[in-house]
Computed example of a mutant assay.
Amino acid sequence: MLRIGSVVMGASDVRRATAFWTAALGYVPREEPEDDWVVLVHPRGTGAQISLGLSETPVRERPRVHLDLYAGDAEDQAAEVERLLALGAHRVDWDSYPEDADFVVLADTEGNRFCVIDTGRA
């Protein structure tokens, strides 16, 4: 049976992206980061890895793959969004939010989009 081992994202500055994602998720580099590649893992070795690879490809406005980061409830979601913004993320002006969206679309320091989800809704 297969399982997800790593989600791979492109970065024009792998070290900057590494700094953002290690602070955002508490992940650590699996081995010494290089200028063009790093694999980040949960410190307890659980869950999917995040791999960051040097890329010259421009960021897509509507990427086909992105991360969903789960927050416990609306209060936790708001706090996490503010924390991620302070780390260098930015809000994405996205025109496809449903009226009662349980997610907020952000982009990391490299422009890679991700969502912060309020999982406390029924």
Results as ranks from 00 to 15, higher is better:
P29D: 14
R30Q: 14
E82M: 09
G72H: 14
C115H: 05
D93N: 10
A86L: 08
L52Y: 02
R91W: 09
V65I: 14
H90A: 11
R64I: 09
G111A: 03
V14Q: 01
A86I: 09
E56T: 07
A122C: 13
G111M: 00
T46Q: 14
S6I: 15
P33L: 06
L40W: 02
L25F: 11
D93F: 03
A24F: 08
E56Y: 10
S96E: 13
A86H: 05
G47I: 07
H42I: 13
E99F: 06
E61A: 14
L52M: 06
D76L: 07
F103D: 06
I117H: 01
V81A: 12
R62N: 08
V39P: 02
C115Q: 05
R44N: 15
F114L: 03
P98C: 13
T22L: 04
D35R: 15
D93S: 11
A89L: 04
A11G: 00
S51M: 13
S12K: 03
P63Y: 00
A48N: 13
W94G: 07
H90T: 11
L84F: 09
D100V: 05
V105L: 09
G10A: 03
Y97T: 12
G72N: 09
V38T: 04
G5C: 10
C115F: 08
F20Q: 01
R64F: 12
G72L: 10
F103N: 02
T46L: 12
F20S: 01
G47C: 01
E32N: 04
R30I: 10
G120P: 09
Y70N: 15
